[in-house]
Design a protein around this nucleic acid. Sequence first.
DNA 1: ATGTCGCGTGTGACGCGA
Length: 254
Amino acid sequence: MKLATWNVNSLNVRLPQMLDWLTANPVDVLVLQETKLTDDKFPAAEIEAAGYQVHWFGQKTYNGVALLSRSAASDVIKNLPGFDDPQARVIAGTVDGVRCIGAYFPNGQAPDSDKFVYKMAWLEALQRFVAAELQTHEKLVLMGDFNIAPTDADVYDPIAWAGQIHCTPQERAHFQALQAQGLCDAFRLFEQAPKSWSWWDYRNLAFRKNQGLRIDHILVSQALKNEVRACVIDKLPRKNERPSDHAPVIIELA
DNA sequence: ATGTCGCGTGTGACGCGA
């Protein structure tokens, strides 16, 4: 079973690219972030024609998530229960016995901003949600754009980024709290090339200079850890003529 | 380099978010 996450930065712009990618990478589950579409504009027919079932949850201009799967997803949840949120950031469903949670974590803008306060509140709610989901789903995968670089090894210039957004101790503590719940950063189960990133700023020729961050992650529950066969970042779509600023991350389970 | 995208507003540059 293969699962993937990709922040497409507008599905309206990236739909052809995403369909091409699925043809080349026929994963069983794909979660999307930053679809930036209201639900009435979601391209369900095109995705279904490609052989996927799909659930979506969006809004105008910002955010928006989707869950694509070969098999039907059951018990689909949109956003965090009990956390009243005008922003569409979470979609979860059970596919082939695996609880799949796709999430677009808040960016947070800057550590001294209102958006950071919101990010922290959202992360608290996520911790509670994951804890509850683990009670009923032993096999669980949390994947998406976390907007957190968990360690300095996930940052191209850790000195410049020290204490900056994505790298604050508070954000990293939340990542560690997820690990303390038994979730495992699948990418780090394997030897990886140094300077492996999942996001490169559009500015400053960042991709060409490989100046990026690893902020897109796939975390697996303890019951799945021994089933993980591979976890890779696919840089290829970032080389396209009109790329998303994020690359997809893929996991293979036994 | 405050260096680029994408969206919405509303017709063409600008503000916002990332």
